[in-house]
Design a protein around this nucleic acid. Sequence first.
DNA 1: ACTCACGGGACAGCCCGTTCTT
DNA 2: AAGAACGGGCTGTCCCGTGAGT
Lengths: 208, 208, 208, 208
Amino acid sequence: MDVGSKFSWRGGTDMTKGEETRRQILVAAAPLFNQRGFAGCSMGDVMEATGLEKGGLYRHFSSKEELAAEALQYAVGESIRLRTHVAEPSLDALAVLRAYIERFVTAPSAVAGGCPLMNGAIDHDDGNIALRAVVRKGFADWKSRLAGLIEQGKAERVIRRTVDADWLADTIIASLEGALMLSRIQRSLDPLRHAQRSLEIVLESVAA
Amino acid sequence: MDVGSKFSWRGGTDMTKGEETRRQILVAAAPLFNQRGFAGCSMGDVMEATGLEKGGLYRHFSSKEELAAEALQYAVGESIRLRTHVAEPSLDALAVLRAYIERFVTAPSAVAGGCPLMNGAIDHDDGNIALRAVVRKGFADWKSRLAGLIEQGKAERVIRRTVDADWLADTIIASLEGALMLSRIQRSLDPLRHAQRSLEIVLESVAA
Amino acid sequence: MDVGSKFSWRGGTDMTKGEETRRQILVAAAPLFNQRGFAGCSMGDVMEATGLEKGGLYRHFSSKEELAAEALQYAVGESIRLRTHVAEPSLDALAVLRAYIERFVTAPSAVAGGCPLMNGAIDHDDGNIALRAVVRKGFADWKSRLAGLIEQGKAERVIRRTVDADWLADTIIASLEGALMLSRIQRSLDPLRHAQRSLEIVLESVAA
Amino acid sequence: MDVGSKFSWRGGTDMTKGEETRRQILVAAAPLFNQRGFAGCSMGDVMEATGLEKGGLYRHFSSKEELAAEALQYAVGESIRLRTHVAEPSLDALAVLRAYIERFVTAPSAVAGGCPLMNGAIDHDDGNIALRAVVRKGFADWKSRLAGLIEQGKAERVIRRTVDADWLADTIIASLEGALMLSRIQRSLDPLRHAQRSLEIVLESVAA
DNA sequence: ACTCACGGGACAGCCCGTTCTT
DNA sequence: AAGAACGGGCTGTCCCGTGAGT
């Protein structure tokens, strides 16, 4: 038997074996649900991807919906982290905004299958309130980070005082997500580059 | 009996009974697939919505995929028609562009469940090339109408010569679609209004 | 005979258009049922083969079973006619018997898919008494022709008086049918040739 | 934990529960497919016969075809075992051959519905190569056992050296199978007895 | 903590047969 | 005499979830 199923440190990470397995399930399931949608991805697909059997899966998640919700949350978290990670902390707020946009254009999704927020928004728009809630929270999180940055820009006097942070954040998110969708179906980077150009015009119009 | 040899008049339109039924199936199925996605909508759902039995359905469409493809095409066609219908032909191109945007913001979708183009783009991004093709063609159609209008604006000297019609069309589509998605999950019209404001800035920057 | 229910002569044959169609259906359906069996052949298959629609088929046959029964009867009739057709009426009975065997070995089936009698015997062994009856009658017919020939041989003093015609007819039929089955699965003519050799031994043992 | 590490003893045989169930499915399915043919026997029939539900069945066999193939193989194996089982090892080869024939005549099939080899040969003659292969192998197996015995008879000097084992084996198989078919449709043992008589003539002609 | 085994329900598609129309 | 349209049932397969076993 092992040294204590519940309280043992595993290779420096303080995870039990169960928590470790649980995480691996999410890592494997996230791209599947992101690509095929909730209805289009079966538990069998997850079984295949994880190498686990039904029982193994249902020990960690009480239903397909719960698994999908957590996988979505994981994917959303990874995406937002990637998109709002500050490479150079010395930049002013406007420059950081531009860096975020550049990052999105060059590395739009952290998980295979496109942006989990947009995919989730479309997939769970009607029905499935649990998954919907995850998406809403994800967008709210992303937006609040952008809005905070905009407010900071106003404080730094690089962005005009009169600018509505809510509006600008929405504009950035909508343009990028819309462009990403176009980019994916057309299998071309042009729409993303075009969005970047348009956002530059908007940013210039708000610069102090 | 009736005079029209081969065709009988059904409600004023010269359709055979089969064509009429076929059309009604599409009208009923389009919002279902648009709301629930391909995998999330069963033939049983379509049966219920149309009042037809399996046999009746499969007489007109040889597979679920074929039905979904035609339903999508129908929905896409309706949407684009609504979005690019000219109310006042006397306006200049820039004004028409603004009217299109206003129309999108106030009446974003012709079919229940949001924009079939965006929904289709997300739903069939991975796999299902037939449905993908319908979406691509839909976007291309919409875009070419916008681009044509932009070129016309350039000819009318209301839009600057140097403007890239491709870029501007992508910008309009991406902003509106992205905003519509935000609008739907947040159950708020704000994102659409915000997009309209941003697009106004862009339009002013290209006006001659 | 009637002169044609509708009183019209069709190209020299006294068939109405309906009877002609009916016959064509049987000609097309016989090999299908012979190859795929009753359960394995759908009315759709017959539609495809005949070029007719459901309605056209069901005008001539009230059910799939009736159609299959008549198609089987047609195929059986053709087979027996081919197998018991006398080429040279001058031969003695034993020589005719040998000619029959030779014919069977070189041209075992008149309809694609093997011997309809054997196929029918296996396919309708359990259940479907109508089709079973057709098969029984077919075998009885074939056997009585052989037995008649054997009796004739006895009268002609080329076959010994003591020979049991029933036994000899069964022997010929069983050997040939069994060999035909082997021949078909092994895709080789050897079993048929082997049967011919064995039957020759038997025939020699009964020759007067 | 129990002592038998991996296997628990089920009724004296070391089979896991799954293997046991799997076997029972085959035992129940074999006569069904043998009687009704592949197309004529539904998975629902197998469910009824086994008492299992769909889920239970598809756990052990990934398709109806796979199930049918294994059921056929089981039935074929049982039949050949029954037909070539040596009761008295002291007999010479010719006597064993006669014993085999006698056995076939008195107990022609080990599984309800007649000889699975013949049924399979007819049912899968056109199409379904997997099932066809099982039948071919079955016949080849049976034939090689007979041919071996014939060669042994030649070594024992009870069968003439010049006899073609291939021919004699084919003759025995074809006669018996053909007679069995006649026997089943006519619901009479006569054809089998007649075949035995004919084979006796052939055997006498090859005896040394 | 995880596999094996199974239940029961749903889904897409096919099939036979009938009715309406021409 | 034949096609077009439709009903309703069935089939093979998949899928989610549970519970015994290990």
